[in-house]
Structures are given as structure tokens and as C-alpha cells.
Amino acid sequence: MNNLRKNRLIDETFRYFGIACTLFGLVMLAIFIGKILLDGAGRIDWDFIMSLPSRKPEKAGILTAWTGTTWILGLTAIIAIPIGVAAGIYLEEYGNKNRLASIVEINIANLAGVPSIIYGLLGLEIFVRTLKLGGSLLAGAFTLALLILPIIIVATREALKAVPGSLREASYGMGATKWQTIWYQVLPASSGGILTGIILSLSRAVGETAPLIVIGALAYVPFIAKSPMDEFTVLPMQIFNWVSRPQHGFIVNAASAIIILLIITFILNGIAIYLRNKWQKKINW
């Protein structure tokens, strides 16, 4: 009986320990967002958003940073989405048993584990040096596109996998070709899942700093980028630059910029989660 009570006690104790551990992560997140709001919320105003960078913290703004982030986001999306979705379609619909597909599959699993800074080294040699794009928006977008391709491919495959075979068979039965079946039936049916994956991958791209530092994105850019060949900075770069400075004013600026960056990240993630829930509910094959 004594042994039984001891076991029950251990069992209960571990339950509380489990609750504590689960809360630990969430509490850290709360402390952390609270601290950033406390530090940075007061600094955010129209001037902060619409000002160019400056050596004086109270005059500096994030105009070049958020326009750069918008540019990068758009260009990366244009490059990565068609390639990623196409590769996903190929692997799931065409290459079921062939050799290329199985090599590509192992390869993608490996690429997903490659640190982002290594992609920076790749971008530096290929896009910046060999293709002579310099530290431009285009070089940055190509680099980030390669980085998020595995995420889009995996998400596309998952979404296509969820489409039942009966839908395809019905389309074939009507005399449609393979591509017509994919384009008119399978893709629309899986668009919610694909879109979720795309948005999540873009949210990853927005927060990336390391590969852009390596390809030579600048921390101080005193003008707004007007073409994809212009030099640029992005929000995470600007935050990194401000965090590394000793003056307290820049730490405050960094906190304010983080709030903007987090808002963008959370909005993207929120849209993705909303789409995922809606898509899962709507489709009851």
C-alpha cells in the first residue's frame, strides 16, 4: 500500500512538473513580448516609420528597412512560389516511382537541415560574385528563395496528397489529360494547403538575417530602393545593427522595430493558421 501511495505521489508531482514546463515556454514568450512592448511601444510614431536611418537615435527611422522588407518579400515570393509549387507537383503527381524523384526527396530533407548562413555563402558566390548582382535586392531574393523552396515543396506535396484519388479518376474518366486534371481539379482542391505553406515560408523569409548579412546587405542605406538592382536593408538587419550599438537610444529603436517585425510575422502566421483551419473544415472527403 505504501508503495502504491508513493507511485501516486510521483505521478501527481510529475503532472505539476509537466504543467510548469509547458507554462515555462509560454511565460518566457509573455515576459519577452511584455519587455519589448515596454521598451519600444512609446517610440513608435509616424516619424519613426517614415524616417530615414540616422546617426542620432531619436531621429532614426525604419523607412528604408520596411520598404526593403516589402521588396524582398515580393521578389522572393515571385521567384520561389512557381518553382516550389511546380517541384512539389512533379514529385507528388509525376515522379512517384522514378529515380530522380527519390533522389530529390532525400535531397530536400537534407536541404531543410542546412543552416541559413550556408545559403548566404552560396548566394555570395553565385548571385553576388558570379552573376554580378552585387549586394542587391535581387541577389537577396534569390538567396532567400532557395532557402524557402524546401518548405514550399514539402507543403505542396502534403496538400496534393490529401486530394482523394476518386477526384482524379473522375477527371480522367471525362477524358481529361494528366495536366488538365492537375490544373483544373487537383490544384484548386489543394490550394488552401499550398497557400498555407507558402505564407509560412514567407514569414520565415521575413525574419531571416544571417544569409542577407553574408551576401552583403547593408545596415545603413540612406535611400529607398527603387529597382531590384538597388542596395537594400531589411527590418532584421536594422534591428541587428541597432542592437549592436552601445547607446541606449538605439536599444529603444531596436525594440520598436522588433514590434513592427513581430506584427508582420504574426499577421502572416495568423493568416496561415486561419487558412489551414478553414481548409481543414471545408474539406471532408
Binding site: 507537383i89 514529385l91 509525376y94 524523384a101 530529390v104 558566390e125 494528366k178 495536366w179
Partner: peptide, 27 residues
Amino acid sequence: NERIIEAGLALCGGLTILTTVGIIYVL
């Protein structure tokens, strides 16, 4: 047409291999 589309899709899949080759080559 079907053939061309399949080849195009395969090319996109192959690009991921090129990425790995590129990384290894550059390093």
C-alpha cells in the same frame, strides 16, 4: 504539350539538386 509541361516541372524539382551541388561546389 503534356510532355513539355512534365519536363518543365521536373526541371523545377531538379533545381533543388542543383542547390545542393551549388552549396557543395562553392564550399
